[in-house]
Design a protein around this nucleic acid. Structure first.
Ligand SMILES: [Mn+2]
Ligand SMILES: [Mn+2]
Ligand SMILES: [Mn+2]
Ligand SMILES: [Mn+2]
Lengths: 249, 249
DNA sequence: GTTGTGGATTAGTGTCGACTAAATCTCCTG
DNA sequence: CAGGAGATTTAGTCGACACTAATCCACAAC
């Protein structure tokens, strides 16, 4: 008999899922590993491409065979469509699950910076663990406390509770022509050293700037910061990580 | 070769443990299960007693053999001293680990009620999961935001960051003699129904009251609430759960 | 078209933490 | 002090996820 297992399942589920509100569909609760794999596939299969075993393995720091096995399991769960030896993409269900985790991650990051004094270079790791433990209700409460924000501290868009996400088309500072008037919108690195450097120099989302100059052969870009008019030299490596929107003149 | 495993361990640890402050000793990071078992043993071996396999099994809703196995593992880790067929108690190390988890749990509960609008009957489950995912740093930040509180929403004492915990000696309302002047300090149930009922009737920690009457044969206790002077009849079952301190006259 | 090579999968293990069924122990009771 | 009830442990499995070693496939280059 499986009496014990049943009792457990029941106790856990009835207290959290039942009673409260209409509640979202609520899949059978995915494990931490599964959620992290789904996020990885989401981020690697940018705009309809496929995520390869190797890239997933690199991103999650696991061995390639682990990814192979997991993709098979995800495929059995209907979360991923995979072509052996080719790669995988998310199904609609998998995409929803990924976006739910991403929403949690980004709301958490913003909450930690806004309400608990964390710096933007330290929130990622914390959110990476918490995203699997928080309830939807808690995330909604945090989002409310934050006034339903649209972007996380790094400028990444926060998916809505019903799984929609904004897609902006941005140019990296490294690619913007000299003379462009830009608004810095996203910082696509998680490296604490780089993040600290950027924050120290005022290079955070929302910044208005003009591209003043760029040296050839991978040389640095010089920008003029908008409010102050001060100049700032940004090396190629960092410039690539600064995603900007062209400002309406 | 174990190159991959090493890289992982390093990456994880160096970003969290290294750099920041002197940092607490930081054991090799215990799993969720291990932490929950340690808490169970702590709570069941009140004041130097031993926790039995069966009671742990009941509390954690697992089968008895699972407990047997886990106790052996905990014993091997030096977290528990166990006498086969008799029971287990925490070692100093195990006690420290348990108190660390309990601190997290209680700080989380209080933070959720104070800063995120959760009711005291809903915070337990959320904290039960989050306690294993939060960092010490986050807990300290929450504690700071709460002004280093000494009690959680249910009146349970919050262990300090260095592992000390207050022990008050309280009487249950069910045992307090008629005429006692009491302060309600702790509510020792987690049942949401009971908690909601108690809150609805003003029976929360901090309440000043006088025992006005008690019916015999397990009958109800009548109390006079202090500020208002209103009377309240409390059944035996609830009275047992209300832990009070005798008020200095 | 064969072939090489890097990427992917299979095969075989290991660990953690759960389970059921079957021994085994403890201790109360007659 | 023998029996028996109840608690505990052992024995045997299982699923989720990781790993290494060995094999397999795709595709680009000759
Ligand atoms: Mn994660
Ligand atoms: Mn972010
Ligand atoms: Mn827990
Ligand atoms: Mn509590």
């Amino acid at each position: 008999m499986t009496a014990l297992a049943d009792r457990r399942r029941h106790a856990t589920r009835s207290r959290t899922a039942a009673r409260r509100a209409p509640a979202r569909p609520s899949l059978p609760a995915l494990s931490r590993s599964v959620e992290d794999y789904l996020k990885a596939v989401y981020h690697l299969s940018d705009h309809g491409g496929v995520a390869t075993t190797k890239d997933i393995a690199l991103k999650l720091m696991v061995a390639a065979p682990s990814v192979s096995m997991m993709l098979k399991r995800l495929s059995a769960l209907g979360l991923v469509k995979r072509v052996p030896y080719q790669g995988a993409q998310l199904t609609r269900e998998g995409r929803q699950a990924a976006l739910r985790t991403i929403r949690r991650h980004r709301v958490l990051e913003l909450y930690l910076t806004r309400h608990l004094g964390f710096a933007w270079d330290t929130v990622h790791d914390e959110a990476e663990r918490l995203e699997h433990a928080v309830s939807d209700l808690l995330i909604d409460r945090m989002a409310t406390a934050l006034d339903n924000p649209r972007y996380d501290p790094h400028g990444d868009p926060i998916p809505t509770a019903d799984g929609r996400i904004e897609s902006a088309d941005l140019v990296s500072l490294a690619a913007a022509p000299v003379g462009s008037e830009l608004e810095l919108r996203q910082v696509t690195t998680q490296d604490p050293e780089r993040l600290r450097f950027l924050a120290d120099h005022g290079l955070v989302p929302g910044l208005q700037l003009t591209v003043a100059d760029r040296q050839p052969f991978g040389g640095p870009t010089t920008v003029r910061l908008r409010p102050a008019g001060t100049r700032q030299i940004v090396g190629m490596e960092l410039a690539q990580v600064l995603q900007c929107r062209t400002r309406a003149k």
